[in-house]
Amino acid sequence: MNDPEATTTPLAELHADGAVARLVLNRTDKRNALSLDLLDALHARLDDLGAAESVNALVVEGAGRAFCAGMDLKAVLDEPGAPLELLTRIAELSIRLRELPAVVVAKVHGAAIGGGCGLAVACDVCLTHADAKLGFPEVDLGVCPAVVTPWLWAKVGPGRARRVLLQGGTLSGQRAYELGIADECTTREELDGACGALTGRLAKAGRNALAATKGLLNELDGAALREHVRRGATLSAEVIAGAEAHEKLRAIYG
């Protein structure tokens, strides 16, 4: 791989091992908060994965203490246009993961907050542990989780999506599992094993059969879902540009 990042610590890593590949968020000092650089690196690693013709399963995971702490809003708050850029890249990343022919598994340890939880929900299967912290505290910050909303709506249904998104705050991994945000919930110690068991099953399955099934499920989602995700980036950026969000965010970021 001829990658200038490779000489320093890459913000995102791709490890391919036979039929199973791993996409690792590696911005550990910021708990893998989604910055423009990290999102660029994740997109670049997916470019490397290419058509993934030999991959049945892609695991998305975070290095360090947490899966992903959410959008790194602090860095972009004062730059006009930058929040929209960030949100657009998150939206496009979620759509790319959904459209890969491989089955995409989010292995959520520690925490998946806001946009990070949104990425996990856009994956085909989300695994977590009971004392992980998941959720969408966007409204608490004056932010609208508009990129995430269509994915959550599709996954858990309108009633639960309303409740989760409008109440803000965070949930335990166990509660997220009960609400259908996560598909499997283990102890922290058992998470790797559960993920390995799932990817082991997927590795043995027929790739064409998996891809046909996923393609059909995406078709039944409807094309409008992806358009809602893209439109969500614009909507969310508009809300972030408002006085309410600025006041709330400035109180946090100083």
């Binding site: 085909d124 599709a154 996954k155 259908g180 499920l217």
Partner: peptide, 20 residues
């Protein structure tokens, strides 16, 4: 299956994609 397990497609997606 989407109709039966819905609203929300998450459970059906997992059940259909996981061969276990």
């Amino acid at each position: 299956l989407l109709t039966r397990l819905g609203p929300g497609s998450g459970a059906a997606r997992r059940r259909l994609l996981d061969p276990g």
